[in-house]
Design a protein around this nucleic acid. Sequence first.
DNA 1: ACAAAAGTGTTGGCCCTACACCCATGA
DNA 2: TCATGGGTGTAGGGCCAACACTTTTGT
Lengths: 259, 259
Amino acid sequence: MLSETRAPPGAFLIALLTCVVRLGERTSEPMPYTYDHPRPTLTVDCVVFGVDEEGLKLLLIQRGHDPFKDQWALPGGFVGIDETTDDAALRELEEETGTRDIYLEQLYTFSAVDRDPRQRVVSVAYYALVKPSDLRVQAGSDAQDVRWFNARQLPQLGFDHKDIVAVGLERLAGKVRYVPVGFELLPKKFTLGQLQALYEHILGRPLDKRNFRRSFLKMGVLDALEEYQTGVAHRPSQLFSFNRREYQRLVKAGFSFEI
Amino acid sequence: MLSETRAPPGAFLIALLTCVVRLGERTSEPMPYTYDHPRPTLTVDCVVFGVDEEGLKLLLIQRGHDPFKDQWALPGGFVGIDETTDDAALRELEEETGTRDIYLEQLYTFSAVDRDPRQRVVSVAYYALVKPSDLRVQAGSDAQDVRWFNARQLPQLGFDHKDIVAVGLERLAGKVRYVPVGFELLPKKFTLGQLQALYEHILGRPLDKRNFRRSFLKMGVLDALEEYQTGVAHRPSQLFSFNRREYQRLVKAGFSFEI
DNA sequence: ACAAAAGTGTTGGCCCTACACCCATGA
DNA sequence: TCATGGGTGTAGGGCCAACACTTTTGT
């Protein structure tokens, strides 16, 4: 039915073609084989969390082009015709971070009609957990700058990225309660103090030291190393590492990691 | 840069245009204003849950066209250029159910490159909770038939809809544990027996009657009516209704509805 | 010596689980 | 009178929250 229709050479035709889409709306399934109509553009945006001494951080880029030129925004970009949205998110993150070894999870798909002032863009949002110590960030092709920001004190963001970040923070706080995500954010060897501080930053409330240590150690996913902090002006803490094998065994067994 | 390129008149050009997209991939943000490249088609698919005497049900349509003609699949369809994915999902559901008064929540976005045999299609999946008693389903324009199926005994499904259903079932089971979703699935007045049976169907395991009643009543979101079942061959059950106002008050207060 | 974080046990209360019998009705 | 689901209370155990002091190091 629409197989001979050409797609719009420019955005000014979109309004015209909308009537064609309206026809399409009456059918509840994709039409056979050759179907051609104005489509939303598909992008990904990534809420990248990290943590350092100051607390929970978020990676933002400073846009090099309009719209929102010079403003800060989430890293992201187009989804190619032959890649999944997961692949697109990883590809974009590799630009800014130089690595693909990143914990990534789909967050939500944002589709407000006016979320991009230029044209219709639907964005699949992801959230990522990285160890800032493991990577040195660098501006990708379309960004002037990349920086870590305090996750609770962000600058004004372009598009609807403020909403996306809010959903990301909420999801992180929800997830941390029953999955030990902290391990994606901390260095290989860490102290229980660091781990607890991380949880307090994510949950936004203080936790009891003794109870925290007990419940975490009880899970059995921490390996106590025969190694200690050095050079700190207080009693050195024992170092721990995350036992991923044991963690996966417990996940399979249906174990609950509630904090 | 690509503003003069025409979109593919047919699927056979997609491979050719892929190289153009590859160029696009190097930029991490949408290009200015007039940007034209082969885009994934965007659809929605809905996992519609209902419940009746037999247990948890799922609404499926029988496809009227290829691909997967005559096979059962999830209701769904294209996302128009001027509607959100939420709107698209509601619009599609209205076709099959005749109402927009449906509890709907975004589930996940599926983007495997080969999930549709015709062309690249990315689908935003939703799950819906409806009261089958409130609506009479009817086949939409592209469907030969619509029917409720036992959610645990589904026929073979087209596309990757089996995966989508699996994610939907998992999410429902997760959600029911801390949100009283049951109210979206039951009639206005219901018995605690019905409510418990619903939970058992969703969770896939039996629950203790006394404990279930106690913990649900303790939440304070059920109004006991001065009304009883009639015409049953056993002691009539008291009827209850859901107090949505109180529920929302408790949600705001951060109350936990764990079962 | 002091500052700063590490490390360590116990108790009370609450909640969750398990469990068995009588009740009201229609057939 | 029988079959069917409705309705009710308690006791034991486990888990969680609250809580304070000593240890080790650098300055």
